[in-house]
Amino acid sequence: MERSALYWRVVLLAAPVTVFAVLVIWPLFSSFFYSFTNWNGFNPEYDFVGLENFAKIGSDRLFIGAIINTTIWMVAAILLPTLLGLALALLLDSKVPGGPIFKTLFYLPICLSAVVVGQIWIWIYQADWGLLNTVIRAVSGSSFNYAWLAKPDTSLGSVIVAWSWQQTGLSMVIFLAGLTSIPNDLLEVCEIEGASTWQRIRIVLIPLLTPATVVVVALSVINSLKGFDILYIMTGGGPFHSSDTLAMHMYNESFKKYLMGYGSAISVVLFLIALTIIRIYFRNLKKVDEIYG
C-alpha cells in the first residue's frame, strides 16, 4: 500500500476510533472497574470490595422489583409498538382513503423528544382535567378522577401506553417498507389460489414480514433498554418504586444515593442482559438471512 494512502487511512480512522474509545469503551470498562469498589462518585478515596456489590444485588428488594418491572416494560414495549405498527401498516397498505395523511399523523410522535411525549401524556393522565378522565366522565357520566400516574397499579402501564404511542409510528413505517418489498407475484399467487384476507395475512404477509419484524424488534429492544427518559419525566420510578426499571434503579442508586460502586454493579448486570438479548438477536438474524436472503 502506498505510504500516503496508509497515512490517510490511519488519520481518518483515528477520529471515530478515539470518540468511540472515549465515549463508549472507557466508560464501559470504568463501570466494570467501579462495580468492584465502594466509590461514592465524589471522593477520590475508595476501597475495593470484590464481589460485595454483586452479592448485595441478590438481596436488594428494589433490584428484584426493578428486574420484574424491566421485564414487563421490555415485553410490553416490544409487543405493543410491534403489533400496533403491524396492524396500522396492513391497514394503510390496503389503500384506505387518506392513507398518506394517516401515515404522517401516526409517524409524527417519533419526531418528538421523550420529554415532550412524557409531558403530553402527563396532561392526558391528569386526574382532574386530563383528556382521558374527561372522556371517561363524559362517557360514563360519573365523577371519575383516577390519578393514573400516581397509583402503583397503573403507573408503569400508563408509561408503557405513552411509550407505545410514540414508538408505533416507527414500527409502522418499517412494516410499510417491508410490505412494499414483498414481490407482487406472491400476492398474486394468493389471489389465484383463493386466499382469504386473513389467510393472506397469516400464511403469507406476516411470515414474509419477518425481516422487517426483526428490525422492528431489534429497535424496540434497544430503545426499551435505553427507555429511561420517559419514565424519569412521567413517574421518576414511582410511586413507591412501582415503575422502577433497572436503568432507573441504577440512576437512583448512583446519583441520588451516591452509591456509584453499587450503581456500576447494576449497570454491569444491565449490560450482561443486553448482551444476551443481542446475542439471541444475531443468532436469529442469521436464520432469517438464510431463508429470506
Binding site: 414481490p183 407475484d185 399467487v189 389465484i192 411470515p207 414474509l208 431463508i291
Partner: peptide, 15 residues
C-alpha cells in the same frame, strides 16, 4: 379454475 406459473417462480421462501 386457472393456474399460473410465474417467471419469478413466485415461491414462498418461508414454506
Amino acid at each position: 379454475r386457472v393456474a399460473m406459473v410465474f417467471q419469478s417462480y413466485a415461491l414462498f421462501p418461508h414454506l
